[in-house]
Amino acid sequence: MSVRTPKKTREFGPGFFGALASSPFGLLMLFGFVAPLLCVVWFGFMPPKTFELLQVPTLQNYEVIFNQTYFKSILWSLGLAAVTVAILLVICYPLAFALAKIFKGGASFVTYAIATSLFVSENIRLFGWVIGFMKNGVVGGTLAKLLGVQVDSLLYNVPVIILGMVYVYLPFMLFPLTLGVKMVPDQVREAAFDLGANRWQVFKKIDLPLSMPGVLIGSLLVFVLSVGAISEAKILGGQKVVTIASDIESEFTYAQNWPLGSALSTLFIALTAIVVFFALGRFDLEKLLGKKSNE
């Protein structure tokens, strides 16, 4: 009987392979995320209306920002995003509950129907609302025909912008919420009923706290996406409301003032980052995706 002599291999710990496997992603992020952001931050300190990165840093851009009314567009962005999140929570929770706990075969139909929309550019879907709400559009035309009421364009106001944001970001709230509601064990809900709780009490004391990871992820996702939204305000809102994202865009396009746009972006990123880090630090993602971690 021959015994193979064990080849001498260097034994790597599992840590080595983890780091190795994460490295392609890490490199992508370094090149495509971290470096561009540093670039933005640095550019924010360049003299206004220049396109060179290698100049003496200055705070001029930030002075301009604080002396002008940019805070208005920041407030508009934050406000619209917050309202969108609140409305979506109310709309999506019952639907998420139905998808997770009540519908059986129908759940995947609804899921597919809503998921498909993710793959159609939001511009196209928003344009549908334009056709619906414009003067002599589908809604106006129908009202005129049926009731004889003449309506002017329903576009270009704040509620329509909010409708557009609610509409575009609905899937980003619905799917995390559904995952969250699925995490609530049926027997735990039944036990609460059995111990005398009514529907509202079960919702408040059991459903909501146990589905909180889903609620948080959904809210966060929607908040971040809608705070940076451009299209809704432009396509549905006309020039009624100027959001911070469109301010930034116009600095880069019409105004050709890259340093000022960069400084605005930096400020905006910092604001969003504060919100995200505050929220992300509060829950464990692994719980939502797979194994429960504390067992």
Partner: peptide, 27 residues
């Protein structure tokens, strides 16, 4: 894999998702 940087990595993965796309495009 279980490795030391895992939890940090899990958070970092999400970062680009929780980031306004228009700003990322400009950057």
């Amino acid at each position: 894999y279980r490795w030391r940087g895992r939890q940090t990595f899990q958070r970092l993965v999400l970062l680009p998702l929780f980031f306004p796309q228009s700003v990322l495009g400009l950057a």
